[in-house]
Structures are given as C-alpha cells and as structure tokens.
C-alpha cells in the first residue's frame, strides 16, 4: 500500500528541486540507482515480513530451520545483495566522472552567510550572485568553497551535493542535458538564513551562454568605468 501510494504521489511531483525528476546524467544515474534500491528493498521487506509471519503462525517449519535462517538469511543473502549493490553503485558513481568528451567549464561557487557567488572562467572576473548560468550539454566543474561557515552546494535535478568548507576547495562535476531553469539550495545547516540560502540555475544553449557571459563582462566593465 505505502509503495503504491508513493508511486501515485510521485506522478504529481515535479518541483524544481526534485531529485526524482533528473535533468542531467549525474542525477539520472542516482535516480536509476534509487529505483533499483526501492524495488529491491520492497522485495526484501516483504520477504522478511513473510518469514516473520510464517514463524509467528508456526507454518513452514521445514523451511524455517534455524540453520537455514541464520546461514541463508543472516549471512548468504545479505552478502550477495550487498556485493551486487556496492558494485552497481560504484559503477554508476564512477560513470559520473567520464560522461563527456568535451573539456569541462570551470565555475567557482563561493558560499557565505547567506548567499552564493558564482565566478566564471579563469581571468574574466565575471561573477553573479544567487543566479548561476551554465551551458547545457557541457560538463561543468564546480570548485566549491566557503568564506565563513560550512554550507553545501546542491542542485537536486542535476546531481549530488558538495560541501562548501572554509579553507578547502571541493570539486563536483555536473551537467544539464537541456536548457532550462533548475533550483539550487544550501543543504548544510549554516545559521539563521539557512532556509533562504537558495539560488537558481539557468542552463543556456552554448551560443546563448557565451552571449550571457559577454553581457556580464560588459556590464562589469561599464560599472568599473
């Protein structure tokens, strides 16, 4: 019942922060892993419940010999499942790193209480606040760090999160498949403004992205004059 309910609920659940509505290869892999684990867990849960019911109602005595339960259920079964699961998850995890031939773009994501600053490229000094522009279809390496306390950089529809830790720079590679707007949040509790520390992600067509960068550069130059 709960499973069915969940599936029904999911049908109506988009939201620009849903990890179950993936929009990039990283999030796709995790979503795949999630569905595998969900159905696998459901099967295991029903199986264990069935055995417990059989034991309580004193049925299937031959099937439920202690030896079978302890060695089969307690050792062999979880070992096989775990080895398979760890293998699948490692494979899916490693694939996250090699999904494109194109050289990744580098963007610095600097967190502070309570906003995100994004710096693009190496020498142009283009920066935006709480609004992230990325090219669609091209991997981006985010160099994540913090100016004050620990935050966490998370765009659920594109992939996993990465902590922004003062004094350290962590890198995470994400990619958006298609142009569009995606939500981003701070996932690590960072004080009173934690809930409002959001940002939006705009994925552009490659040409459009270059235009945006040029506009940002020009407006910056204007302001500096």
């Amino acid at each position: 019942m709960p499973i069915l309910g969940t599936s029904l609920l999911l049908a109506g659940c988009g939201g620009d922060l849903s990890a179950l509505d993936p929009a990039g290869p990283n999030a796709h892999n995790v979503a795949t892993l999630w569905w595998i684990m969900l159905w696998g867990s459901t099967a295991i849960f029903l199986f264990v419940s069935l055995i417990l019911c059989l034991a309580l109602t004193q049925r299937g005595q031959r099937l439920l010999s202690p030896r079978w339960l302890l060695i089969g259920g307690g050792l062999a079964f979880p070992s096989v499942v775990l080895v398979a699961l760890v293998a699948v998850s490692l494979a899916l995890g490693e694939r996250l790193l090699v999904y494109a031939n194109e050289a990744p773009l580098r963007i610095e994501a600097v967190a502070r209480q309570w906003q995100w600053e994004f710096r693009y490229g190496d020498d142009t000094n283009i920066a935006t606040l709480d609004k992230l522009h990325i090219p669609a279809g091209r991997p981006v390496d985010f160099a994540v760090t913090s100016d004050d306390v620990i935050h966490s950089f998370w765009i659920p529809r594109l992939g996993g999160k990465m902590d922004a830790i003062p004094g350290h720079t962590n890198t995470i590679r994400l990619m958006a498949d298609k142009p569009g707007t995606y939500g981003g949040v701070c996932a690590e509790f960072c004080g009173e403004g934690h809930a409002i520390m959001r940002f939006s992600v705009q994925a552009h067509e490659p040409n459009e992205f270059n235009d945006v960068m040029q506009q940002l550069s020009a407006s910056r130059a204007e302001r500096q004059q």
Binding site: A19, N29, M37, I44, W154, G160
Partner: peptide, 20 residues
C-alpha cells in the same frame, strides 16, 4: 525499513543526493 534505507544511504552516489 530503517535498515534498508541505511543500506541505501551507504551507497555513495545516492548518499550525495539524499544527505542532509
């Protein structure tokens, strides 16, 4: 159920989504 979701969270790619 808690044990099963624990195994899920032990898987790194999923953990990075579900963590926090």
């Amino acid at each position: 159920i808690g044990g099963l979701t624990g195994v899920m969270l032990a898987m790194v790619p999923f953990n990075l989504q579900a963590h926090d």
